[in-house]
Deep mutational scan, measured.
Amino acid sequence: DEVRLHVNGHTIEFRGIDEEIFKILEEAAKRGADEEELRRLAEKLLR
């Protein structure tokens, strides 16, 4: 299960996240989070 999030012209792939987590990451990206911040956030949410 892989999703792709487009951030500042880059595509970031995440594996094993559900739609709810994806929406949180998408919102963070809209607020200016970079790839590293998004990955840290995803790790926290998946715990």
Rank of each mutant, 00 (worst) to 15 (best):
K44F: 10
G16S: 03
E36Q: 13
K44L: 12
E26T: 13
V7G: 02
E36D: 12
L41T: 06
I17R: 01
E35Y: 11
L38G: 00
T11A: 04
T11Y: 15
E2F: 14
L38Q: 00
E20G: 10
G16Y: 03
A28Y: 11
E19S: 08
E26M: 10
R31F: 10
K44Q: 13
E20L: 09
D1G: 14
G9K: 01
K30C: 09
R15Y: 15
E26I: 14
V7P: 03
F14S: 06
E26H: 08
E13P: 00
K23E: 11
L25W: 02
L5D: 02
D34M: 12
E35S: 05
R40M: 10
F22P: 01
R47T: 14
E27Y: 06
K44D: 13
L25R: 00
E2M: 13
E2D: 09
K30S: 09
I12T: 01
V3Q: 15
K44I: 13
E13T: 04
I17C: 05
K30H: 11
R40D: 11
G9I: 03
K23Q: 10
A42F: 05
E20P: 08
L5E: 03
R15G: 14
A33L: 13
R15H: 15
E26A: 09
E26C: 13
H10N: 10
L25V: 04
L5Q: 02
D34A: 10
L41D: 00
E43L: 05
K23P: 05
E20K: 11
A29H: 07
E13D: 13
G16N: 07
E20Q: 12
D1P: 12
R4F: 10
R15Q: 15
L46N: 07
E19D: 11
E35L: 11
E19G: 08
G9V: 02
G9T: 01
A29E: 02
G32I: 03
R40I: 11
I12G: 01
H10A: 09
R31N: 15
F22V: 10
G9E: 03
E20F: 11
D34Q: 14
A28S: 10
L45P: 04
V3S: 08
E37D: 10
I24N: 05
V7M: 03
E20V: 11
N8E: 05
H10P: 01
A33Q: 06
L38N: 00
H6Y: 00
E27D: 10
A33G: 05
K44P: 01
E43R: 05
L38C: 03
E35A: 09
R40V: 10
I24F: 09
I12P: 04
A29G: 05
I12L: 03
E19L: 07
V3M: 15
E27F: 05
E37L: 09
D18I: 04
L38E: 00
F14H: 04
I21S: 14
V7T: 02
D1Q: 14
E13W: 00
H6L: 05
L45D: 03
H6A: 07
E43P: 00
G9F: 01
L25M: 03
E26D: 08
H10E: 12
A33T: 07
N8A: 05
L45N: 04
K23N: 08
K23D: 06
V7E: 01
E2I: 15
D1H: 14
E37S: 13
I12S: 01
T11I: 14
L46T: 14
L5S: 02
G16K: 01
G16W: 03
L41M: 12
D18Y: 03
E20T: 12
R31Q: 13
G16R: 00
T11N: 07
A29K: 02
R4S: 11
N8M: 01
E13N: 02
E36H: 14
L5C: 06
L25K: 00
D34C: 06
E13R: 04
I24Y: 10
A29R: 02
G9A: 02
A28R: 08
E19R: 04
E26G: 05
V7S: 02
A28L: 08
A28Q: 10
D18G: 12
L41R: 01
E27A: 09
K44G: 11
L46C: 07
R31G: 13
R31W: 11
L41S: 01
E27I: 12
L5I: 15
E36S: 13
H6V: 15
D1K: 14
I21A: 11
R47Y: 05
H6I: 15
E19A: 11
A29C: 05
R39H: 09
A29I: 11
I21Q: 15
T11F: 14
E27N: 10
F14Q: 06
T11D: 15
N8I: 01
I21R: 05
G9M: 02
E20A: 11
K30N: 08
F14T: 06
I17G: 04
E19P: 07
A33N: 06
G32P: 01
I12W: 00
R47K: 12
G16V: 02
G32F: 04
A33K: 06
L38R: 00
R39D: 03
R40S: 13
R47W: 06
A33M: 13
A33R: 05
G9Q: 02
I17Q: 02
D18K: 02
R31S: 10
D18A: 05
I17H: 02
V3D: 04
L45T: 04
A42G: 05
I21F: 06
A42T: 03
G16H: 06
R4Y: 14
L5K: 01
G32W: 03
F22T: 06
R31L: 13
E19H: 07
V7I: 09
D18T: 15
V3T: 07
K30M: 12
D18W: 04
A29N: 05
E26V: 14
D18R: 01
K23G: 09
G32A: 02
H6S: 12
D34K: 10
A42L: 08
R4D: 02
A33E: 05
D34F: 10
D34R: 07
A33W: 10
L46P: 05
E19M: 09
R40Y: 09
G32Q: 02
E26L: 14
R39M: 11
H6E: 15
I21L: 12
K23A: 11
R39V: 10
I24P: 01
F14G: 07
L46D: 06
I17L: 08
R39A: 04
R39K: 08
A42S: 05
D18P: 09
G32S: 03
E43D: 12
K30I: 12
A29F: 07
F14D: 05
N8Q: 04
L25H: 00
R39Y: 13
N8F: 00
V7Y: 01
N8K: 04
E37C: 14
E43M: 04
A42C: 12
L45R: 03
N8Y: 00
G9D: 04
R31P: 01
L41H: 02
L5Y: 00
R4K: 11
G9H: 02
